[in-house]
Design a protein around this nucleic acid. Structure first.
Lengths: 290, 290
DNA sequence: CGGGCCGTGTGGTAGGACCACATTGTATAC
DNA sequence: GTATACAATGTGGTCCTACCACACGGCCCG
């Protein structure tokens, strides 16, 4: 803290400034770590710390070696950073499940509403995902992963980058809580069947341009599952919950239940749950399953 | 890359795992950088890179020195990370203004709708901000900063952490584009007066429990300003725009106009625009102006 | 003319050496 | 005995050097 702000923040500000000034644009390569360090009068470590932040935030992609593809390249992929942010916040109980669901509800109803009113819509990807969900015998996790991707693909089709990025960030959380609710279902086969039908109905409503129906169907689709799994006793809507006061300090309200909810938290021998890399590799179950 | 994943990712995963297992909770202190480095068998640099990510994401707060307040402490403040993410994405043209506005619209209408239907609501903070906006002669920037905070405070009052965090992230972008639109207004005095009145109406509708009115008022409030400033020729809604195809590669669609739009991007002598630290210091204009 | 090899520059990592800082414990002065 | 000043300790923050693995590009040799 010899300067008034920390060295890595200076680097971040310098790059942000370059972006705002138009000196740096998506697709450009940043200077090498060593060059940038000497240019800004900071150590390479500080440059690297700033680069890590930019990388996790989805702003740059780094590659070693040489050539035009090597180095740090500005990519501006909003979804990556949002995903990392969401999953870590959920992990730290920063977000409650009901808030995630409520946000889903708000965003997704808006998405299908707009899609229904848009003559330029392209639902090829969502339909492709629905086909994949029905064409094979899938495990619960596989089915629900495709489910989450279907909902995300609707947001992508609607074309709003901010909503898409937010939905992408929520995807991981959604998959988790949805999967956690499976054991509470009376019949997985029945429920998955119903979910698939509801998906088709949603798409049909959109293609008919029936915005109101699409909205209602999505709402019922999400709240229905949420209620059926007993993850909440009432309809999840965006409103202050009674334990809000408790959560303002340091609380652990109902968080996304992970694999072993019954395991005592003390046992050091408990095997760690599968933890995916924070920088999302973006796998495609459709292609993988084919 | 001696290991299959990069060292700093291992650190991140280890911490995320500890969070999910309940071994680490908000308020706890993380091990020191040196200790964690030797524990995980990585260099201290790698631990630091992971810590920087966690810090920017709003998950931890670091302080040097000694004592119980020193070190890295888990705070799980979602808004900070979201803010950093949004501003950098906007800087890199990752988000278009109309998408930001459309998202605002969706979230804020939902927020006031729920607030109107909630008997437990507490609008003290929003009202306080409105009072501050009317009690003094404020510059345009000050007024609009309070404006943005007012809208954010409504989201906070609604109690949904995810929506609040998203709105907080959008706040910076909103302030920018709103401020950029001021020169297009026929009369700032008239417009600011109108905005203030609309704010009061919104609050009144909420307190009367009139959800439908509140929704409509917010919608008109946002779209009205957006249209008046000529930032878009049509109502901004969440739908794919015509230049979406162009933007998928490397485009620079209408982005948030910053301070000096007319400055030639070449001149190295051009003074950089004011760039705030990415890690938000969270200032309070109300207190500052008092 | 073609193919294999090595130089060179890149990011990735480890680890050491400082610095500034805040706390804590101890020794000193009153 | 109390209170003050000082030193020891441990923290994050920064810079630095030395490596490694990797990928490209050009050189040399067949």
């Amino acid at each position: 803290m010899t300067e008034e702000r920390r060295a890595w923040q200076q680097v971040l500000e310098h790059i942000e400034s370059d972006l705002l000034q138009g000196r740096l644009r998506p697709g450009d390569r940043l200077p090498g770590e060593r060059a940038l360090a000497t240019d800004l009068g900071v150590g390479r470590s500080s440059v690297r710390e700033a680069f890590r932040v930019l990388e996790v935030l989805g702003l740059i992609r780094t590659a070693s070696g040489s050539g035009p593809t090597a180095g740090a390249i500005i990519v501006a992929l909003p979804t990556g950073g949002m995903t990392a942010l969401m999953r870590l916040q959920v992990a730290a109980n920063g977000f409650a499940v009901q808030d995630v669901v409520a946000t889903r509800l708000v965003l997704e109803t808006a998405v299908v509403h707009d899609l229904a009113g848009d003559s330029q819509r392209n639902l090829a990807r969502p339909v492709e995902l629905l086909d994949a969900m029905e064409s094979r015998q899938l495990s619960e996790a596989e089915f629900l992963a495709l489910d989450a991707q279907f909902h995300l693909s609707l947001a992508e089709a609607a074309g709003n980058q901010v909503i898409t990025a937010t939905m992408a960030g929520l995807r991981g959380s959604i998959e988790n809580y949805v999967l956690a609710g499976v054991p509470n279902l009376p019949s997985w086969a029945e429920t998955s069947e119903r979910l698939a039908v509801e998906h088709r109905h949603i798409v049909a409503a959109i293609e008919e341009g029936d915005a109101a129906s699409a909205r209602t169907l999505v709402r019922d689709h999400i709240t229905g599952y949420y209620a059926e799994t007993g993850l909440a006793g009432r309809t999840p809507v965006a409103r202050p919950d009674e334990d809000a006061a408790a959560r303002t300090s340091v609380s652990h309200g109902d968080h996304v239940a992970v694999a072993a909810p019954a395991s005592s938290p003390d046992a050091g021998s408990t095997p760690d749950p599968v933890v995916h890399p924070v920088v999302d590799p973006v796998v495609d179950p459709v292609a993988a399953a084919s």
